[in-house]
């Protein structure tokens, strides 16, 4: 074995160890925690809230993100590049900044929030705010994936559909959408994962209230200061969810249709 091969092997093992060690450490430490901790009221509340808000946010993302992804894949307008940059913005924005930005927009004193407040709609520090924060940060992940999926669908298929009498909308539903399915599902998984892990924007915009806005990552943070066992249980649960996400990612249909 030459020196370079040795270095490659060593770094491979080191990187795997660097990632796995903390994960395994959580799983080992959690084995000392009494299983009853799992069923404690605030842990269960955080799990329920996280599953509910992340799923609702993903649903919203699919509803608003799919037409945008299709537009980005098909439009030749110069405005398209502009829209693309805007859509990607939340991905590079620090989550805490996203939280402040959401407060500045939708907070009680926010530029839109003050009108909403006078209409009786208060968003910050509610469960709705959690969903808004998650949608804000996870949307680009879905749009990017779905856009790549639509871009991979040959326009000839759509042209064929038009000549067969299908409207643009029918063509979208029956041809473009099914052919982009793999990328769309991958986008759903990624954005759901991002929503599940959301911390910074949520704590800023929605606060940290048990049962209302305290999602699992926020609960880990809170528990760390009073009860390490509880934090470990929640962390272990999030690790399990992450493994489940990776597994789901693997079974997504990877098959790409060649022009037939």
């Amino acid at each position: 074995m030459n020196a370079f091969a040795l270095i490659r092997t060593f770094t491979g093992v080191a990187v795997a160890g660097f990632i796995l060690l903390p994960v395994i450490a959580v799983l080992i430490s959690v084995s000392d925690v009494s299983p009853g901790m799992l069923l404690s009221e605030d842990v269960m509340a955080a799990v329920r809230l996280s599953l509910f808000t992340a799923t609702l946010a993903t649903l919203l993302i699919v509803i608003i993100g799919t037409p945008v992804a299709y537009l980005l894949a098909r439009s030749s307008s110069p405005l398209r590049r502009f829209l693309e940059v805007i859509i990607n913005l939340p991905m590079v924005l620090p989550p805490a900044v996203a939280g402040i930005a959401l407060l500045a927009a939708f907070g009680r004193e926010g530029i839109l929030g003050r009108y909403l407040a006078s209409a009786g709609i208060i968003l910050p520090f509610t469960t709705a705010a959690v969903v808004i924060a998650q949608t804000f940060v996870a949307l680009p992940l879905y749009v990017r994936s779905a856009r790549a999926g639509f871009a991979g669908v040959s326009r000839t298929f759509e042209g064929a559909s038009y000549t067969l009498g299908a409207s643009e909308f029918t063509t979208f539903l029956r041809v473009s959408l099914p052919l982009a399915k793999g990328a769309i599902i991958a986008g759903v998984i990624m954005s759901w994962a991002r929503a599940m892990g959301e911390f910074g924007a949520t704590i800023m915009f929605a606060g940290n209230f048990v049962g209302r806005t305290q999602t699992m990552p926020l609960a880990v943070y809170s528990a760390l200061q009073v009860n390490m066992g509880k934090a470990l249980v929640l962390a272990a649960l999030l690790i399990l969810i992450s493994f489940f996400i990776l597994f789901a990612f693997e079974i997504v249909p990877k098959r790409r249709y060649a022009d037939a």
Binding site: G159, A160, Y162, T163, A166, R174, L179, Y257, A258, A260
Partner: peptide, 28 residues
Amino acid sequence: PQKRSIGFVFQELALFPHLNVYENIAFG
């Protein structure tokens, strides 16, 4: 194109890869 009532056979044929033969023909 939807309203021109013209049959078009594409160079790439463009058979819908996610539909079987029957579904492809039945599409229109």
